[in-house]
Amino acid sequence: MKYVLRSGALTVAVGAGLSLTVLPTGSASAADGIQVRCDDIPGLVAAINQANTNGGRITLAPRCIYTLTTPDNPDDGLPEITGDVTISGKDSTIRRDPDATEDFRIFHVVSGGTLTLKSLTVSGGSIGNMGGGALNDRGTLNLNNTVVKDNLAVTGGGLYNNGGQLNLDRSTVEHNSATGFGGGVVNDAGGTMTMKRGALLKNRAALNNGGGLENILGTATLESVSVRGNTAVSGGGIRNVNGSTLNLKSTTLKENIAVSGGGLSNLASPATLVDSLVTRNTAITSGGGIDNQSNGQVTLTNTKVIDNEPDNCSPEGSVPGCTNPTAAIDPPPTRDLLPDDDIKDPQ
């Protein structure tokens, strides 16, 4: 059975040759799901409210852009996620109107809520606090084959995970900006972030730290992820601070830029890199590849930190297995470097 949400009413196809019956919004079941017509924002809002109550799957029109012109509540473009809500599309986009006069993020998951996004793009959010694309406040946010791009916030330009569970699979966080820290993602307050495949790409923390990812008092695990082309004051690619735990596996930190810690800035925290590559990152002062400060512990296992400017690791000797070339020693020939193809880079 198929439900099609049309701005507060559901049209139900009950079988071949039978008439259509109009049912109230609350009549759809979680098992059947709800279809929302292209750019039907009242229908999308009603579908989310219904799914919050009953749980359910919402399906958007393929390759359609849903444009939010005004917020649903003071900070959010759509209703807060309080239940178990899944929104699926096929190259569909939910965005804040570039000409909107009010600032608002796109999604907000509150404590106890679960939001799963599949094959969507979330873009254009703008907020004067946390999470331009989405704020996950002690709930669960799952992104599958989803792009979060061109969002702006003070902290967590793309995503802010505040003490919740953030899971990204084959997803990309790109071209987001923060005026404070965490251009792409902030993982904070005991939050857990797991990212498999995908990329943190060309995000920017304009005046602070953590261009791609700022990990604060949380645990972040990235596997087969490209962290590339991000910029910040400290930790162009990733900044790991305040006792946070960072685990990188089969991950590339490449072409990130910062004043210090071009690829990774690690401060008083454990960071483990396995089967990974840190290369072609740039720092204005030191720690082109890795800047490891205040008794931070960086463990490299089958990982290369090479060809970073002006050095690979700082302070000298602070990262076991990481060496800085000297003027008397030529850099290793290209054939000795780990090829990019050895580590999957979705770019």
Rank of each mutant, 00 (worst) to 15 (best):
G124H: 02
G124Q: 07
G124N: 06
G125Y: 02
G125M: 02
G125H: 07
S126L: 02
I127H: 03
G128Q: 00
G128S: 07
N129Q: 09
N129Y: 13
N129W: 03
M130S: 06
G131F: 09
G131E: 10
G131S: 15
G131V: 11
G132M: 06
G132C: 05
G132L: 03
G133Y: 05
G133K: 09
G133S: 11
G133M: 06
A134E: 10
A134Y: 09
A134Q: 09
L135M: 06
N136L: 04
D137R: 11
D137P: 11
D137M: 09
R138C: 10
R138K: 13
G139N: 05
G139P: 10
L141H: 14
L141F: 13
N142P: 03
N142F: 03
N142C: 01
L143T: 12
L143C: 14
L143A: 07
N144C: 00
N144H: 04
N144W: 02
N144R: 08
N144K: 06
N144P: 01
N145M: 08
N145K: 12
N145W: 07
N145C: 04
N145Q: 11
T146D: 15
T146M: 14
T146Y: 14
V147Y: 00
V147I: 12
V147D: 09
V147Q: 05
V147R: 00
V148Q: 11
K149D: 15
D150A: 11
N151D: 11
N151Q: 05
L152C: 02
L152A: 05
A153T: 08
A153R: 07
A153S: 14
V154A: 00
V154H: 08
V154E: 04
V154F: 13
V154M: 10
T155Y: 14
G157L: 05
L159P: 00
L159C: 03
L159W: 00
Y160G: 02
N161V: 13
N162C: 01
N162I: 03
G164Y: 04
G164R: 12
G164V: 02
G164P: 06
Q165F: 00
Q165I: 04
Q165E: 08
Q165T: 14
Q165D: 12
L166K: 10
N167V: 01
N167K: 03
L168D: 10
L168G: 00
L168M: 10
D169T: 14
D169M: 15
R170T: 12
R170F: 09
R170S: 13
S171N: 06
S171F: 08
T172F: 01
T172W: 00
T172H: 01
V173I: 13
V173P: 06
V173S: 04
V173R: 04
E174S: 12
H175S: 11
H175Y: 11
H175W: 04
N176W: 07
N176Q: 08
S177C: 03
S177R: 04
S177A: 14
S177Y: 06
A178P: 05
A178R: 04
T179R: 13
T179A: 12
T179I: 10
G180P: 02
F181K: 01
F181I: 03
F181R: 00
F181N: 02
G182I: 06
G182V: 04
G182N: 07
G182Q: 05
G183V: 14
G183C: 15
G183T: 13
G184N: 12
G184F: 02
G184R: 02
V185P: 01
V185G: 01
V186N: 15
V186W: 15
V186D: 15
V186R: 14
N187D: 12
N187V: 11
